[in-house]
Design a protein around this nucleic acid. Structure first.
Length: 270
DNA sequence: CACTCATGTACAC
DNA sequence: TGTACCTGAGTGG
């Protein structure tokens, strides 16, 4: 489930469960055994998300970097940790509860210099209060790359993934094939603001819901949908199904190895 | 049960 | 641009 909102939720959950306490760190699967040995017994000082990257800072300047990639998954629960089953790369445990990490793209210890390198290559994160959307706009407005691809580039904006990308473009009525250069400043302002709204709601709810109340099937006088994926969206993974607004079929286009979902009528150039 | 696909990234060529 | 990473859900036979 890893877009930026998920990682921000994980950071908050880690802070609540472990911050200020010594943490038992293990790697039941063994692939992070050395790192676990170096961390175990240290006190967690902070847990923060930057885009899709989770940084756990321990005393002694140790920084644990986790990136879920496409497969990674966390299990966090209060109470004593059960005997690990399956491939648990990383386990944190304290008297408050435990966190198990499986299948991450990255689980590694970083030196302070590595942390700076990592953060320096990320664009602004709409979920961070200090984010500067102008930094993203400088890159977008000079780029010949299409806006749909720029929105997935973590060096431009950190945090959005394929769902938020598709949904904010739809909600703004923007043709995904528009180049960054051809995007209006007002359009970027709308996209940035909407990312902030939608992703903050995602942090609160743990889901991605993007459909405005006035566009729900019920409000549009249509029968309710049955095949939901847990969230309510306009176009993501709705290929061939009728657009919730104009009823024309939603399309899929492959772009840079990822599926882009969009409505060619609601998102036409004008 | 075999096979495809996925909310992602890095690296090889 | 293609492939590796590496896990689980969904699909179809």
């Amino acid at each position: 489930m890893p877009e930026g909102h998920t990682v921000h939720r994980l950071a908050a959950a880690h802070a609540e469960m472990f911050r200020g306490r010594p943490v038992a760190v293990t790697s039941p699967q063994g692939r992070f055994a050395d790192g676990a040995r170096r961390l175990t017994g240290r006190v967690l000082e902070s847990a923060e998300a930057y885009g899709k990257h989770l940084l756990l800072r321990f005393d002694g300047e140790q920084v644990l970097h986790v990136h879920l990639g496409i497969y990674g998954k966390y299990t966090l629960a209060p109470g004593p940790a059960p005997t690990p089953t399956g491939a648990v790369r990383l386990r944190l445990a304290s008297d408050g509860g435990y966190a198990d990490l499986r299948g991450p793209n990255a689980c590694e210890l970083l030196e302070p210099g590595d942390v700076k390198t990592l953060l320096d290559r990320l664009g602004p994160d709409p979920l961070r209060p200090d984010a500067d959307s102008e930094l993203a706009w400088r890159r977008i407005s000079r780029s010949r790359t299409v806006i749909a691809q720029l929105l997935m580039d973590q060096a431009v904006v950190a945090g959005p993934g394929n769902i938020y990308r598709a949904e904010v473009l739809f909600r703004a009525g923007i043709d995904p094939r528009l180049s960054g250069k051809d995007l209006a400043a007002s359009q970027w302002a709308a996209l940035w603001a909407d990312l902030g709204v939608l992703m903050a709601e995602g942090v609160r709810t743990g889901r991605i819901d993007t459909v405005r109340p006035q566009h729900t099937p019920e409000a549009m006088g249509r029968p309710p949908r049955v095949d939901d994926h847990g969230g309510e969206v306009y176009v993501y993974r709705r290929t061939g199904q009728p657009c919730l607004i104009c009823e024309n079929p939603v399309l899929t286009t492959e772009l840079a190895g990822r599926n882009l979902f969009w409505c060619p009528v609601c998102q036409s150039p004008r």
